[in-house]
Design a protein around this nucleic acid. Structure first.
Lengths: 136, 136
DNA sequence: CCGTATCCTTAACGATACTG
DNA sequence: CAGTATCGTTAAGGATACGG
């Protein structure tokens, strides 16, 4: 990955050709833009849940402990904006809203899934490391 | 992933067996703890750079545009605490400090690497999606 | 049921200055 | 070179209340 390149704040990601830092004032969708999607507090969990199939708004809220309505809505809107999630409204009464992954969303959900599996697999190791580090 | 489970704030991650939300007051190293490491602003970039091999402190700082000394140090300390990075001091003059991945760190660096490649591959798609969403 | 609006708090982060 | 210390900002997120 990035043989000798610079991981710039607003870099074009593939900076193999660049010698110095890539300009930080580049315009549209950069590495950080996309990474921030994974970086926020809830997107990863939402993507993981939706990876198992479509979910209603209320199912997501019950499925992700501690998320507020505000944050669930904001997270879903962001994911929708990025073309990773689609929102489907069934105008029944009461109205029913389902969220599901787009094809591209599914590919990210896969990545996110293996990240979660990594966390699961190395949880104890990390906990032990922290204990040892802290008691020094 | 997580067949029918709840992705709780402090969950034990594998909650396949649990019916309801897992207690939020669990003690040590939970899903969110590990995910937050990926969630902060710089860890992913540091891990990616170190995935190419050991780097000196100054190399990391030059390699990651926009990172402050403060944040580089904090990020490295956290990664060290989690047992993902090791710090090696060569007491020359001027002193030389190298950072490298632990074996477990390398496995996370791999995950992080494919995440970055995902971002690279779908950057344009995401940018387009945002444009379309915003102009509505 | 599925949100939006508002207010408020915290903590992540940046800037700057200083040190062995 | 490789940090630490301090201060200030701002943006993310939580709590709560209300609406279609």
């Amino acid at each position: 990955m990035t043989e000798e390149g610079t991981l710039a704040y607003g870099t074009n990601i593939d900076v193999r050709s660049a010698a110095g830092p890539v300009g930080a004032a580049t315009p549209t969708c950069q590495l950080r833009d996309v990474l921030d999607r994974v970086g926020d507090k809830w997107s990863v969990l939402v993507m993981a849940l939706l990876g198992d199939g479509p979910r209603r708004y209320s199912e997501l809220q019950r499925g992700i402990e501690g998320i507020s309505q505000r944050m669930l809505t904001l997270t879903l809107r962001s994911l929708e904006r990025d073309g990773l999630v689609v929102r489907t409204v069934t105008p029944s009464s009461p109205p029913r809203v389902d969220y599901s992954l787009t094809p591209v969303g599914r590919t990210l959900s896969t990545e996110v899934g293996s990240l979660i599996r990594w966390a699961e697999a190395h949880r104890d190791y990390v906990a032990q490391s922290r204990l040892r580090y802290d008691e020094q």
